[in-house]
Write a protein that binds this DNA or RNA. Structure first.
Length: 528
RNA sequence: GGCGGUAUAGCUCAGUUGGCCAGAGCAUUCGGUUCAUACCCGAAGUGUCACAGGUUCAAAUCCUGUUGCCGCCA
């Protein structure tokens, strides 16, 4: 049976500056989902990339004394390095300056123009001369530029428009017929009452005020302006319109994961564009919240941008991935702070998971240096813990269906808590004292080790290094191959009692050393 | 200004269609334990559920108004 496909995307990021923890957040989330689906046997295509045109890129490059292309090539290298650092395993990385993409965008413009979905008009707005940018009435601060503060002038510019208004009724129907098309649900209400119902206006899709962009084929004075160029990446990355092999296989996307600031473009303009092109629509758009810093929006001007590279170097990939996915309810805004991060690391990773592994392995090594014996005496508490793990797995799967990463992790940690409690109840250190209790002790330790094995599988979509570290100590083979797969695949988490007899258990270093929070915060403070 | 969202323990948040003394995790305090990364287990809490009215036998949950914060306004 051929595998079912799963196509998931991140936004394409705008590299006018270094990416921060907020970008990492979207990408880590998509990576976790992609890893999960791969483990569930899907044929996954995970797309990410960069949006490389526009005036801001042009100016940033100029300031750096580089050509846009030079500048962008360097940025793209940096971004790929960041994803490598965070163990992001994407299948495609599109740059909107890729030759294929540029040609595809031109073809799309041409088609839309020919069929009358794009027409010539003029764009009126408030223009800021120093910034060379247009602003709307509402964006302007007292008639002045919100960026530089210069006085704005009313200006008109010739522009081509996309007939968004024509698709108004179809869009309304789309939202009404598919309550899961745009999540969270509140965003859909916003789109309907804020935009669709008052009446959609056509959108300007070309500019003449800058030239770092894709030339519009039917009018060389104009370059493509963001929407069509950026949004179409989701299909051009699959080869559309020339090479349809991947496109036919993967499109439509199963989910576009985006930040809430671009919900409007993805849920209105993008479907309308696809309708105009007579292509299938994505199944779902998920607009997640923002990662705030101490409750404040991150911005360069505030100087509170959190650099993911620094965090990973300091604390490791898995703690950062864990924090992002656990602490922030996907969909709502979350808050990053050094204190919150360290508290999570200490309580969840060091105390709960790390210590559980540590105490289990230590007892096995101490009492059964030759490995767990084949004969042991099972008790109802053991079965009860295994049942709990079964239920945990079911919950994790249900939560993942709705991209509720934080809840999935919460469930797994409830199982970890249950294991710690199980140790208290069974009191293995007492059993160790008397040799005649050793069969019972073997069962207790076996139950713990087997559940740790299952936990290692369940956390695999979220944490990329920890499962291997756990298996190493538990004496479970890792890596590819059937032998390893039987203990590490998602399906193996469904099955209990897989942990072998006489494993080569060895004590390792603590996976997550406890951090002295006050000292750590003080040293961070000192750096600033 | 318009539309929408949100306001619950020190912190981060759950609270389904209104119904037992309002919950979880973390942090705090106390007790237990000692296999373990001074960890784990247990207990104790603390709350005018933003404010003011209203509907109801009954509201954190519905309605109205006010205030704070947030997003969007092509």
């Amino acid at each position: 049976m051929p595998k079912e496909k799963y196509y998931i995307t991140t936004p394409i990021y705008y590299p006018s500056g270094q990416l921060h923890i907020g970008h990492s957040y979207s990408t880590v989330a998509v990576d976790a989902m992609a890893r999960y689906k791969r483990m569930r046997g899907f044929d996954v295509f995970f797309l990410t990339g960069t949006d490389e045109h526009g005036q801001k890129i042009q100016k940033t490059a100029e300031k750096a004394g580089k050509t846009p292309k030079q500048y962008l090539d360097e940025m793209a290298v940096g971004i790929k390095k960041l994803w490598e650092l965070l163990d992001i395993r994407y299948d495609g990385f599109i740059r909107t300056t890729d030759e294929h993409h540029e040609k595809a965008v031109q073809a799309i413009y041409q088609q839309l123009y020919e069929q009358g979905d794009i027409y010539k008009g003029s764009y009126e707005g408030l223009y800021c001369t120093p910034c060379e940018a247009f602003w709307t009435e509402s964006q302007a601060v007292d008639g002045h530029c919100p960026d530089c503060g210069a006085k704005l002038e009313k200006t008109e510019e010739s522009s081509y428009f996309f007939r968004l208004s024509k698709y108004q009724d179809k869009l309304l129907k789309l939202f009404e017929d598919n309550p899961e098309f745009l999540l969270p649900r509140s965003r859909a209400n916003e789109m309907i009452s804020n935009f669709i119902k008052p009446g959609l206006e056509d959108v300007a899709v070309t500019r003449t005020s800058f030239d770092w962009g894709i030339r519009v084929p039917f009018d060389p004075e104009h370059v493509a302006y963001v929407w069509i160029d950026a949004l179409s990446n989701y299909i051009t990355a699959l080869g559309y319109p020339d090479d349809l092999t991947n496109y036919n296989h993967y499109w439509p996307a199963d989910v576009h994961v985006i930040g809430k600031e671009i919900v409007r473009f993805h849920s209105l303009i993008w479907p309308a564009l696809l309708m105009a092109l007579r292509l299938p629509l994505p199944k779902q758009i998920f607009g997640h919240g923002w990662l705030l810093f101490d409750g404040d929006k991150m911005s360069k001007s505030k100087g509170n941008v959190v650099d993911p590279v620094v965090l990973v170097e300091k604390y490791g990939v898995d703690p950062i991935r864990y924090f992002l996915l656990r602490d922030v309810p996907f969909g709502a805004d979350g808050s990053f702070s050094n204190r919150a991060l360290i508290e999570r690391i200490n309580s969840d990773l060091a105390n709960d998971l790390g210590n559980l592994l540590s105490r289990t392995v230590a007892m096995i090594v101490k009492t059964f240096p030759e490995g767990l014996p084949g004969e042991f005496l099972e008790a109802p508490v053991d079965v009860e813990l295994d049942d709990f793990a079964d239920e945990t797995l079911r919950q994790v799967e249900a939560f993942m269906d709705h991209l509720e990463f934080n809840h999935a992790l919460e469930s797994i940690w409830a199982l970890i808590g249950h294991c710690n409690k199980y140790i208290d109840v069974t009191m293995p250190w007492i059993l160790a004292k008397d040799e005649k209790d050793h069969p019972r002790l073997a069962s207790v330790l076996y139950t713990l080790a087997d559940n740790l094995r299952r936990i290692a599988v369940m956390i695999s979509p979220f944490m990329t290094r920890t499962p291997a570290l756990m298996r190493e100590q538990l004496g479970i083979a890792d890596g590819d191959g059937e032998a390893a797969d039987s203990m590490t695949s998602w399906e193996s988490a469904r099955t209990r009692d897989l942990y072998r007899r006489n494993p080569e258990v060895r004590k390792g270093k603590p996976m997550f050393p406890r951090i002295d929070i006050e000292k750590e915060l003080a040293s961070i403070e000192a750096l600033q």
